[in-house]
Amino acid sequence: MAKSSIKVRAKVKNGDAKVKCLISHPMETGLRKNKKTGKLIPAKFIQEVVCEHGGKTVMNAQWNATISKNPFLSFAFTGAKSGDMIKISWVDNTGKSDSTEAKMK
């Protein structure tokens, strides 16, 4: 399987979890021009990021092309314990998607 586009680091301290993730994605706005051809580069950006923990959606982010290239995202939630699995998935405007699961430390 190809390497996942998502890197996740999640740490649990006294039941509080802090999640950091880095997604590798061009986040193209559709307004930029290719310098050589002068043509517009078609838009390609992540529209939705979902994080699930224990079957529940912890966080659901809806993004515009305003988010930087190779997006970074961090958030926190309670009621987690070390060793729990966390699932992160994204969908972009072209219908492409990816997801990954990580064990919380």
């Binding site: 509080d16 912890v58 995202l73 926190a76 309670t78």
Partner: peptide, 16 residues
Amino acid sequence: FNLGANTKGFISTRIK
């Protein structure tokens, strides 16, 4: 960012 019941009011990201 839509947050779940247990999610803290904290978000960090990078924008253009």
